[in-house]
Design a binder for these strands. Sequence first.
DNA 1: TGTTTCGCATGATGCGCATCATATGGAATC
DNA 2: GATTCCATATGATGCGCATCATGCGAAACA
Lengths: 213, 213
Amino acid sequence: MESPVTDAPETDGPRARAKRESLRRILVAASARLRREGLEGAAIAPVMKAAGLTHGAFYAHFRDKDELAVAAFRQAFATERERWIGATRDRSWPARARRLAARYLTARHRDDPGAGCAFAALATDAARAPDAFRAAYGQELRATLAAIRGAPDDDPMRPPPLDHAAAMLALCVGGLSLARAVNDPELSERLLSACRDAAERLAQADAAAAPPD
Amino acid sequence: MESPVTDAPETDGPRARAKRESLRRILVAASARLRREGLEGAAIAPVMKAAGLTHGAFYAHFRDKDELAVAAFRQAFATERERWIGATRDRSWPARARRLAARYLTARHRDDPGAGCAFAALATDAARAPDAFRAAYGQELRATLAAIRGAPDDDPMRPPPLDHAAAMLALCVGGLSLARAVNDPELSERLLSACRDAAERLAQADAAAAPPD
DNA sequence: TGTTTCGCATGATGCGCATCATATGGAATC
DNA sequence: GATTCCATATGATGCGCATCATGCGAAACA
């Protein structure tokens, strides 16, 4: 269970501190490269170089490449889940959904996968990845769905059903992935706006199907 | 523009016929492997072996690996667009959309990417692929959206707007991709059914927003 | 029938990559 | 202050891959 993420105490010598700092730089570099280049593309040597180290130092931090992939994937969410999902204080599901789609389905997000959502960046890669990675993908997905819903099930606020959050995220991930896959700028823009609009319609239909209170 | 697909005349000797037959086998093998293993995974030697040839014969059919990828991608749609989109004769958009989602978002489709939709199998790979591949992706996407809509714009049947078809496909592609990425069978199943249900709600909202006649 | 063509096979070549073996130099420990 | 760690660097090793060079044999053609 213990993954080599930055979860160590602060109280130790410059030796351990330096190692933790190295690990942090490795994870930052890896999580960006992973999202930009994919699971196969994020090679060890370039990642280590980007972290200011050489390839040999890698094995002081991780057992193998797969372990790095899992840690870097998790790092991406530790850093930026809030940024895309946002703990919005909006009460109604349509308002929350509109906000999610408006943040997620943008040209800016499409054009900077290295800083964006790892679900969209790695969806098809994950399907071909080893079990440990797919397990992490599932756990982060569950956590993200919980964040989208925004309140525990027994909260008087009545969060949207898990299924509604899941479909909304699927719409966003699918729209962003297609918009990235396509060369034609007009079609790409059209995909983003079509999905933004559809998110709005869908959330309103969701609300009608499961009234807020 | 001339891509080396099977579009040659039937009237020539056994020499050309044999070559066309080889090409066909290469494309079939490549399009399955491409969807199963991704752009990087579909290596030349294994594909040629699966086609009953050796790696050396490859360059009699394609200039390089990228050209094969484009041809194999197109092949996937030439063969199986009908299968997922289906030229359904249903008149209403909700009925058409329900049918699309019911065919697309299945465990069978999820578990056999080699025979499934190439959009979902290669979405994130395409974002990192060379321009020629991305251009093909866009063209096939446009053609697929037209098939989903089912009628030309000036048809009295009033097809759903392009944007509605695009969002519906994004929902399907996103749902299938997430369901494949995840390890947990329960979550995976949940994603499929959540998106099927959402497709239904969305299509009904679509119909309300743009009445059929 | 002799010559040319060309689809295919065999066998390099070279590169990028993951991983390992070994060395080093400065903390940590006594 | 001497010894032990250990994070890092350097430099193999071996593999998979794309691509190219070369040869063969049967069809195409004169």
